[in-house]
Design a protein around this nucleic acid. Structure first.
Length: 362
DNA sequence: ATCATTTGACCGCG
DNA sequence: CGCGGTCAAATGAT
């Protein structure tokens, strides 16, 4: 199967998707230039374009050859509140940080060791009788198991459904030798998918059945858990958050994560960390819009290049990206598009603004 | 029939 | 050369 290709190539795929999306949005903006489209609507497109390139740079920065590209990319993205500097004034290609980063990403193969990695120790309490660590909110697929020298228990390798969601994250699960109820979980790579509870039984942990059965509406199948993850995860260990650069989707569910060890292989990705800033904790009052715009794991699926047509996740990400991880003015998503004077041919539809209402395709 | 998991083989890295 | 990660065919579950 092709679920688990090389993670670096997967991140490269995400990078390409971001760039393609940026190009697509630019194309749309161009198409709307002559039309009676309000500046505000154009602004949304511009935000989307900027966000795409920012995320592309972020991907380069995170998974790419840091020592080669950071001097260009970080210098651009490090400036809070001035993301426009990335693609600011027209420059020659030689001086364009985006161009340089891209070129270098092509020139220097990604190093797996540079992937963001962190570990968690999960205590699956014995009364639960769990044979697997608790669900962390994401969909994982087991693709390998290996007996590790000196370890009592084998190590499981899991990946996300990257072909469906374009998510590059990997996960390793190993039961602790001393305390079999404790699982050492190592995450590699960053999520670009949404932390969603799948409707079908999850592959790795039986407790997922329990989580799903309470919710009838698709929206309810994921949002409460997502919010729980948000709130629990972000409230777990603020010291950790502050001292370790934090902001990972530390999901501490009812099983009690004992320890979080963040391996700061990439510590200077401001964009990335800002995506998970504690200031983005959704409140119950506005959790819906916050969820869409502040998901710690932005949707990044881009279903190919279709002129004039966007996949729903594409638009969702555009909205998400435009309001996350950057200091852009927040664009609300619950405004009527007509007020913005968006042309009827504008390829938005209501559904794309509410991707959570549509079930993930299997 | 479809999808997820298992498991032996293969491959890259140290 | 050994270890660990990944692949992919076989197997199991639904």
């Amino acid at each position: 199967m092709e679920f688990n290709g090389d993670s670096s190539s997967c991140e490269q795929g995400s990078l390409v998707r971001e760039l393609i999306k940026g190009m697509e949005l630019t194309r749309q903006l161009k198409a709307h230039m002559g039309l009676e489209v309000s500046d505000e609507a154009k602004g949304i497109l511009v935000e989307g374009i900027l966000s795409s390139y920012e995320k592309a740079l972020s991907l380069l920065n995170l998974g790419g050859s840091m020592e080669q590209s950071q001097q260009h990319v970080v210098a651009s993205t490090n400036v809070p509140g001035s993301p426009i500097s990335v693609i600011g004034s027209p420059k020659s290609e030689d001086q364009n940080p985006v161009f340089n980063a891209l070129q270098e990403a092509m020139d220097f193969p990604r190093n797996r060791k540079m992937m963001t990695t962190w570990t968690e120790q999960v205590n699956a309490s014995s009364e639960d009788g769990l044979e697997a660590p608790p669900d962390d909110g994401y969909s994982w697929r087991k693709y390998g198991q290996k007996d590790i020298l000196g370890a009592k228990y084998p190590r499981s390798a899991l990946c996300t459904y990257r072909n469906l969601q374009g998510c590059c994250a990997n996960k390793q699960v190993q039961r602790n030798d001393e305390d079999p109820s404790v699982f050492d979980i190592t995450y590699k790579g960053r999520h670009t998918c949404t932390p969603v509870q799948r409707s079908k039984s999850a592959p790795t942990s039986p407790e997922k059945h329990e989580e799903n059965k309470h919710h009838d509406h698709p929206m309810m199948q994921q949002q409460p858990n997502v919010l729980l993850n948000f709130q629990r995860g972000l409230s777990v260990d603020i010291q950790n958050v502050e001292s370790k650069g934090a902001g990972y989707p530390l999901s501490t569910r009812e099983y009690g994560y004992e320890n979080h060890t963040f391996t700061p292989s990439i510590m200077n990705d401001n964009n990335f960390f800002s995506n998970y800033s504690p200031s983005f904790i959704p409140s119950p009052a506005n959790s819906t819009s916050n969820y869409f715009s502040r998901s710690p794991c932005n949707v990044s699926t881009f279903g190919g290049v279709h002129s004039g047509q966007h996949s729903e996740s594409d638009i969702a990400e555009m909205i998400s990206a435009a309001t996350s991880g950057t200091n852009y003015p927040i664009i609300g998503i619950d405004f009527p598009l007509e007020q913005l004077g968006i042309n009827p041919s504008f390829p938005f539809d209501n559904q794309v603004f509410f991707p959570s209402f549509s079930q993930p395709k299997e």
